[in-house]
Design a protein around this nucleic acid. Sequence first.
DNA 1: CAGCAAATTGCAAAGACTTGCAAATGCAAA
DNA 2: TTTGCATTTGCAAGTCTTTGCAATTTGCTG
Lengths: 126, 126
Amino acid sequence: MKKTSTSLQILSLLENCHCHLSAAEIYEQLRPQLPAVAPSTVYRILERLVHTGQVSISDMGGGTEVYEIANQRHHHLVCERCHTVLTLSDAEIQPLFESLQQRHSFVISTNHLVLFGICEKCRSGS
Amino acid sequence: MKKTSTSLQILSLLENCHCHLSAAEIYEQLRPQLPAVAPSTVYRILERLVHTGQVSISDMGGGTEVYEIANQRHHHLVCERCHTVLTLSDAEIQPLFESLQQRHSFVISTNHLVLFGICEKCRSGS
DNA sequence: CAGCAAATTGCAAAGACTTGCAAATGCAAA
DNA sequence: TTTGCATTTGCAAGTCTTTGCAATTTGCTG
């Protein structure tokens, strides 16, 4: 993969953000520095970064996909009612993945699992 | 939820199919019987069926979401290379969900997990 | 079975990506 | 440094899906 200024900026944007950003948000944050960049370019760079494993893409229930730097494997529980996001360490999921991999001779590449449900606050509150 | 002829037909279509169908495929299969139905109606009915738990929606890696009747809880392993789909019984996943629910006081509603990776054949073949 | 409120639908427009293609750019060999 | 080619980009057009809104249909109630 070539190092173009646009892809480097997107990567550093994600590295510094430590949060989930949508393609549209990334595009907006990029415009001040790179006014001429096209939305399709942003989508394509993100696609490439996902493909090379530098960035993870996931549907967090917000209606559009969000991107995040892929440095530390982790997973999430997302409340469907209040949209609170709990973060799970990889250690909580890894044992399951191991056993599935062995049982089915399958190498799992999913590295950012998102599970939906209802958090404690919403459950007791309603 | 009201029982309209269109929603009943979509439900019976999914019941008889026992497979994953995209919204576009459902729309196409519906047209011979209901020529006047609008695509937006199909999307909205599917959304409702998902919301009421009668149908599950998932991204199986095919580029568009697919729908399936939600009668028996199960999960999938999808090969990213050859797109083979392995089916997992709920029993293989349920213990993890239980422990996550207890540990985080969170009720998981995700009922159709899809994990991506590489199947045995593709791994040995390449 | 008539009257109604709420749910559902069609249509058209908007939104979120995706794709084809020619021009521009990055990288490496000369 | 220059050249050559594969990769990347912008643009415009194309998909797939969602949404606003007015018209229609459905399931009560009386």
